[in-house]
Write a protein that binds this DNA or RNA. Structure first.
Lengths: 204, 204
DNA sequence: ACCTGAACACCGTTCAAGT
DNA sequence: ACCTGAACACCGTTCAAGT
């Protein structure tokens, strides 16, 4: 069972008071069950089913995660780290601008597409500070800004290209890919258009 | 009441056997109620509430519209006509390419954004022939192709730009605008990027 | 301090009984 | 031929009772 792997490294946010041992165990079981359920049935899957899979009462799930978005947020934790790692890798790689952005956008769409409905969740949280996922969006915006700035420093970006707008556009592509059930690679033509739209046209 | 307007011009698709008078009246009442409810609460609003608003039994709603998508499809009827009209207007206008496409994309996003969740519905129906909304998507794809072809004829489009991909991209923008609750005008920067991505860069 | 699961509310969907 | 609304199933959410 994959339950073991993450049950060992008790998943908890850095600066929070420690949970009682049994509570921590339940929290981990819920997260494992949620990850599996989201993967199979998408982010709209029944919370009751997740509780049952995790072998806990429904109330326990709600105690740990008052809303569905809180649960999604927790499940997204490792996922945000992966994106930050990708960002760093691309910036360090020193690839030519177009290749760097192609790589970055592709990974972005791939990462955002882990669960059906995850892309849509992200989009609606992006401008909603009240959403539990809002912070995760900030991380994405920051990573995207970092990558774009590194390309801008090479003079490859058109004037007036705003990282926020690019982020929205790419999220839109991720969402299209998600709801049309496109393979990640099938998003490439759309991403290519965006690239042509933000990169300085080849100069003689 | 706005109910009167559309109750007079009994809304029925061209080639279908006529309904009994009372059935036709109920159908119209349901559509009016659905339009109002979708506008207020979005495309995910309770069907039961729509039936109540329309003053019919729940079963009557299901008799006329077996699935939620069938109802959405019917509500979208006049909406698709509006898009086709916009398409024709833009093609006939003989505006310079960039202005023509700006106009077209803006209207597209505006039209698709009538109801919360409508854009998402469209996206997922685009590649799903089994969906009742699929036909409506075909209309949109056709209109979009017409506009793009008219611009291509002027040599303003980059080589290899596919109408289908552009349609997907713009739907994605509409979806972002929808779920982030952006005003239609706020989609302009994203649309500008797409324009730069598909138009031939200015030549000296 | 935390867990359980019965109980409630809400919504989609069906279908027997009615006109 | 069509309509009604009670009935059922399913899901989210709460909370009294338990450890």
């Amino acid at each position: 069972m994959s339950a073991q792997a993450s049950a060992q490294s008790s998943e908890q946010s850095a600066a929070e008071k420690p949970l009682r041992a049994d509570a921590q165990r339940n929290r981990d079981k819920i997260l494992d069950a949620a990850r599996a359920a989201f993967r199979e049935r998408g982010a709209a899957c029944s919370l009751d089913e997740i509780a049952k899979r995790a072998g806990v009462g429904a109330g326990t799930l709600y105690r740990h995660f008052p809303t569905r978005d809180d649960l999604i947020d927790a499940v997204m934790r490792d996922w945000a780290e992966r994106i930050q790692a990708d960002c760093q890798a691309v910036v360090d790689s020193d690839l030519p601008p177009r290749m760097a952005l192609t790589e970055w956008f592709n990974r972005f769409v791939e990462n955002v597409g882990i669960y059906q409905g995850a892309a849509a969740k992200l989009m609606s949280a992006m401008d909603d500070p009240a959403s539990p996922i809002y912070r995760k969006c900030q991380v994405l915006v920051a990573a995207n800004t970092t990558v774009l700035d590194s390309v801008r420093a090479k003079g490859a970006l058109r004037d007036g290209v705003d990282a926020r707008e690019v982020m929205r556009l790419v999220s839109g592509v991720a969402s299209v890919a998600d709801s049309s059930r496109l393979a990640p690679a099938e998003a490439a033509p759309m991403l290519a258009i965006i690239l042509d739209g933000i990169l300085e046209p080849d100069r003689p």
